[in-house]
Amino acid sequence: MDDHDHSHPHPAAADEAPPGYYEIMETAIRELLIEKKLIAPGEIRRQIEVLDSRTPALGAKVVARAWVDPGFRARLLTNGRAACEELGISFYDDTQLIVLENTDKVHNLIVCTLCSCYPRPVLGLPPDWYKARPYRARAVREPRKVLSEFGTEIPEDVEIRVSDSTAIQRYLVLPQRPAGTEDFTEEQLAAMVTRDAMIGVVKVNLEHRIDS
């Protein structure tokens, strides 16, 4: 225990403004659902735990496995969901997963122009920019310009393939394995794979390697 005596004022730890319209509506609906015994209070907390357990580290593990195991890579490209489930990554909804492989000839970029569809079971919550209108509108309209703003330049003879997720399919980009990583372990490879590389806005870069 520390000897912090709370004799000085602290800034508010969270937003203490009065609740807004939708916040009040959410609270009212939640309380009604619990009162009518349609859900239990623990179920919402449990679902938050499910979502919190999903992070880009899971996707990175999938990518690294695909890089070292050709059989897994083939199964992943055939049925993304089944291959992730093989690694113990469960899908808690009815979405399917298409894994899009970047090659010397194709660079994949994913977006949801209608809302914020995202491979949450394997990557967790999407970044704010992914949900914001500028990215959603521009990714399908001028993908090369958007990519260059992320510092990614794709040669003219490489196809940019933008996948717009709208319904039950979700996408995960399988980035190219950088040259010079032949001696890396699967764990070292996974440490290089970032969230943005699995959305397709950057490539996996040897310089961005996180030493473990």
Binding site: R141, V162, T166
Partner: peptide
């Protein structure tokens, strides 16, 4: 993408995929 957007500035190869 050239069929979606008149005057699309990128490569002729670029495409949209959607279900």
């Amino acid at each position: 993408l050239t069929a979606l957007w008149p005057g699309y500035a990128g490569s002729l190869l670029d495409s949209l995929r959607i279900e």
